[in-house]
């Protein structure tokens, strides 16, 4: 498969650029996690279902950020 993109500028996809994107995304994730945690802890205290979802959320999130990190290192 070959696509013609026409005249195109050279963009430097350096690890630094990817780290900046990663960092911005991580900040968004931390803020979102704080909001979610606040709701889960405030309104769903001692609920096993919420506790399970909390674990899934953090494990999944950390795995995604860890795999994004491996992509940066393999650049």
């Amino acid at each position: 498969m070959d696509f013609d993109f026409g005249p195109i500028r050279t963009v430097a996809f350096s690890p630094t650029t990817l780290w900046i994107v990663w960092g911005l995304m991580f900040i968004v994730w931390v803020v979102m996690s704080a909001i979610l945690l606040y709701h889960w802890n405030s309104y769903s205290i001692d609920d096993p279902k919420v506790r399970r979802m909390k674990i899934i959320y953090f494990v999944g999130g950390l795995l995604l950020f860890a795999s994004a990190t491996t992509f940066i290192f393999s650049l």
Binding site: V21, W22, M25, G61, L64, F65, S67, A68, I72, L75
Partner: peptide
């Protein structure tokens, strides 16, 4: 990399 962040 971008797809992983998209998944996030």
């Amino acid at each position: 990399f971008l797809f992983t962040l998209w998944l996030a």
